[in-house]
Each structure stands twice: as C-alpha cells, then as structure tokens.
C-alpha cells in the first residue's frame, strides 16, 4: 500500500503513549496498533479528526503517499 502512516512519529514528537491516545480518541489499543503499522483498510474521518485534535496536527502529518509503496488497490 503506498499510503504510509506516520502516527508513531507524531506520538514520539508529542511524547505521548499509544495507550493514552487510544483512551482519548476512544478506540482500542489493538486497533491503534494496527493503524500505526498501516495494517488497516481505511481510517474513518471521525477517527482521523480525533487523532488530529489530540495530537494537534494535520492529517498530512499523519499520512504520507509514496509512489513506490506497492499496489494502489491495497490487495
């Protein structure tokens, strides 16, 4: 998948633990871990907005497109 999730980078910048973020945005730690690893099919706008609000960042800070990242269909 050519979309990379830089959530771990933002978490490190804000010095926040995954556990705290998961609790604040209302998703499970397991799901947040999957999101950090980029192993999800998609992210809901509501989840993205909550993450941006907590980490005080823009969606572009969390997601990155790399053309050589693989199949665009994600299959």
């Amino acid at each position: 998948m050519p979309i990379l999730v830089n959530l771990d980078v933002m978490l490190a910048r804000r010095k926040m633990k995954s556990k705290d973020l998961a609790a604040r945005i209302g998703i499970t730690e397991a799901n947040l871990s999957l999101l950090k690893q980029g192993r999800v099919k998609g992210v809901r706008f509501a989840t993205l907005a909550a993450i941006c609000a907590v980490l005080e960042c823009q969606p572009g800070d969390l997601l990155e497109y790399r053309a050589d990242g693989g199949d665009v269909t994600g299959k």
């Binding site: 998703i27 799901n31 947040l32 999957l34 999800v40 099919k41 998609g42 992210v43």
Partner: peptide, 11 residues
C-alpha cells in the same frame, strides 16, 4: 457478512 468484515478493517 462481507460488509461487516470490510467494516472491521476500518478504524
């Protein structure tokens, strides 16, 4: 079932 499975892939 297919839609529910797909929905589980979204966080």
């Amino acid at each position: 079932v297919r839609a529910a499975d797909e929905n589980r892939g979204f966080v």
